[in-house]
């Protein structure tokens, strides 16, 4: 039997096989069921959160995860409070920090910064977001939410709504879900914000999955198992008139929810601005706040796995 190489870093979601993702989600499930059993698993271990740009939500999720495993945390929350503002390179920072921490989560505005960091790090590196590029723990969070809600990641109809052109969470969710047979992607966006051609091409080549496009959420909402909302930003449009004309078609409100299946779930990577009206929060099908909670549990599972502390 071939010896399995231990996973050391998580830079992009494709670093994980489907089996590894399934096993992480199962571990997150064990943690949810028996949190006390994991309360000391990372005792005397330290997580460094190196955030070269602020992202309070993601940073708190990582730190809460480590604290719940009995570990400790250190790091910085923005570039101003780090030596990087004095011009220190990522490569140098990593070589210093790895002497203080057992595992590193890094967020950086430049694309590929975690790839570079992983070349120098002798401890596991987690990409906590690199510019508009990858954000694998968000994708793990999304997959965990879907799996926990439906008991499977196969054969689901996933509606992705809003800015599908620039939205990296959507790109990476597609890259992950395309590996599960029977996925039907419904891409709901204005013409201007369709997914990039390379993604549409890769979906067209896929024989396991189906993909349809729609310019209207109302027209397709009744077919969806999951509705994944993203924000349509004003600055993505060339003129104000187009934005005003289109924005309402991609805002989820209680009216549109009437057309949805009884067991559809609504997801959103948060923070939300106005793309989901606050009234929808009370709908039993909204899951975006649960999603954030799953984010903590899957990060706990990931930390255990990367540290080799999984029992």
């Amino acid at each position: 039997m071939e010896e399995k190489k231990p996973l050391r870093h998580l830079i992009e979601i494709r670093d994980l096989t489907v089996a590894e993702i399934d096993s992480l989600i199962a571990l997150a499930g064990d943690i949810i069921a028996r949190p006390d059993d994991f309360a000391d698993t990372c005792k005397r271990k330290k997580l460094a959160t190196l955030f070269y740009e602020p992202s309070t939500r993601t940073r708190l999720s990582f730190e809460a995860a480590m604290l719940e495993l009995g570990g400790q945390i250190l790091g910085f929350a923005s570039q101003d409070s780090s030596s990087a503002s004095k011009g220190e390179s990522v490569a140098d920072t990593i070589r210093v920090v790895e002497g203080y921490a057992d595992i590193i989560a890094m967020r950086h505005p430049k694309e590929g910064a975690p790839v570079l960091a992983a070349q120098y790090a002798s401890v596991p590196m987690i990409n906590a977001g690199d510019g508009g590029h990858n954000h694998p723990t968000q994708t793990l969070t999304d997959l965990t939410t879907i799996q926990r809600e439906f008991g499977t990641l196969e054969g689901l109809t996933i509606g992705l709504c809003g800015d599908l052109k620039f939205g990296r969470t959507v790109h990476s969710l597609i890259a992950a879900m395309v590996r599960y047979p029977g996925t039907h992607f419904v891409l709901i966006s204005p013409q201007e914000l369709r997914p990039p051609v390379y993604i549409l091409d890769s979906l067209a080549r896929e024989t396991n999955c189906k993909c349809t496009e729609s310019r209207s959420l109302d027209a397709v909402i009744d077919s969806l198992d999951v509705l994944y909302m993203t924000r349509v930003q004003r600055e993505r449009f060339f003129n104000e008139a187009d934005y005003v004309r289109l924005k309402d078609s991609f805002i989820l409100d209680t009216d549109k929810m009437r057309g949805a299946k009884q067991d559809m779930i609504v997801m959103h990577p948060l923070p939300r601005v106005n793309e989901i009206s606050v009234a929808v929060d009370k709908d039993y099908r909204s899951r975006y706040f649960e999603q954030a909670k799953y984010g903590k549990y899957i990060r706990m599972a990931l930390i255990l796995e990367l540290l080799g502390l999984r029992q």
Partner: peptide
């Protein structure tokens, strides 16, 4: 211009 190679020297 958003790539880490644009700011990190010597890599």
């Amino acid at each position: 211009p958003r790539c880490i190679t644009s700011t990190e020297q010597e890599i």
